[in-house]
Amino acid sequence: MPSASEAIASRLPKPPVTPTKPAMFLDLDGVLAPLAPTPDAVGPDARRTEVLTRLTERLDGRVAIVSGRTLNEIDRISDGAARAASGVHGLQRRRGDGTFANQAPDPAIRQAVAAFDAFAADRPGVLVEDKELSAGLHYRQAPGASEDAIALATSLAQATGLALQPGSMVLELKTPGTDKGVAVTAFMAEAPFKGATPIMVGDDLTDEHGFEAAEALGGFGVLVGPERPTAARYRLEDVAGVLDWLDEIAGAAA
């Protein structure tokens, strides 16, 4: 028999297309772009760029990409369509006016990168991503390495004080002090987001902080992908469904 949270997740409806004065906070991988075997395999897409550009215009700039990727990667993949953006789980943030609020990297990130490189050296398919503010260990192409990868990342987090952020077939050790929920909250205190209804759209565990922040500020979360226990109130099936829904919101706001 399913638990209460599982029962709730299985009943999540499609989100509305006419929320009151929406402020959209959108994850990238698995939400605006399909998941790929490697981070570099994701690139710009004409429809995604068009939808984001039009949505940002219709909502008077109240659109931000909130991702685990760096701002440079966000800009590359979104083709520069996102004026406001948060990268590396809130450690980088570009405000709606183009100014930045970035944190300095924890010195222990270099230790984590070195340990991840050593781990990946004799495990084909395991990839290391150095974001300066964090270190990512990807094992989507080597699922058999998951148990050892988790043990290594957990041990490093305990030894260094870095924050461990599990994701979809990736483990990230990051400079502590922020997450996607912190980023959403910070955006909502600033123009052009202040006074709007926050809507966080995400697909994995890293987005739960964003769902919770949006809910606490009078908005809601939208889960993308398979049903699971979540703080989100609504659900969309996949990336195509997200782009269709955003397109509808842009049209309704015109």
Rank of each mutant, 00 (worst) to 15 (best):
M1E: 13
S3H: 09
S3M: 04
A4P: 13
S5Q: 14
E6Q: 15
E6R: 12
E6I: 08
A9N: 06
A9F: 08
R11Y: 12
R11V: 13
P13W: 02
P16N: 04
P16E: 08
K21D: 15
A23M: 06
G30C: 07
A33S: 14
P34Y: 06
A36K: 11
P39R: 11
V42S: 06
G43C: 01
A46F: 11
R47G: 11
R48P: 10
T49L: 03
E57F: 14
E57S: 15
R58Y: 03
L59S: 14
G61C: 11
R62Q: 13
S67Q: 09
N72H: 08
E73G: 14
I77A: 03
I77D: 00
S78D: 02
A81N: 03
A84L: 09
A84R: 11
G87Q: 04
V88L: 01
H89Q: 14
R94K: 12
R95W: 15
F100W: 06
A101E: 14
Q103L: 14
D106K: 04
I109H: 05
R110N: 11
V113A: 01
D117L: 07
A118D: 12
D122E: 10
P124V: 06
V126P: 00
L127W: 03
V128S: 02
V128D: 06
D130E: 06
D130S: 08
E132V: 15
G136P: 13
R140C: 01
G144T: 00
A149D: 02
I150K: 13
L152F: 04
A153Y: 07
L164V: 13
P176H: 07
T178N: 02
K180L: 04
G181E: 00
V182Y: 00
T185H: 13
A189I: 09
E190S: 12
M200T: 10
D203F: 12
D203Q: 12
D204N: 10
T206D: 08
T206M: 03
E208G: 07
H209W: 03
A214Q: 12
F220Q: 02
E227C: 03
E237T: 13
D238S: 10
A252W: 09
A252S: 14
A253P: 03
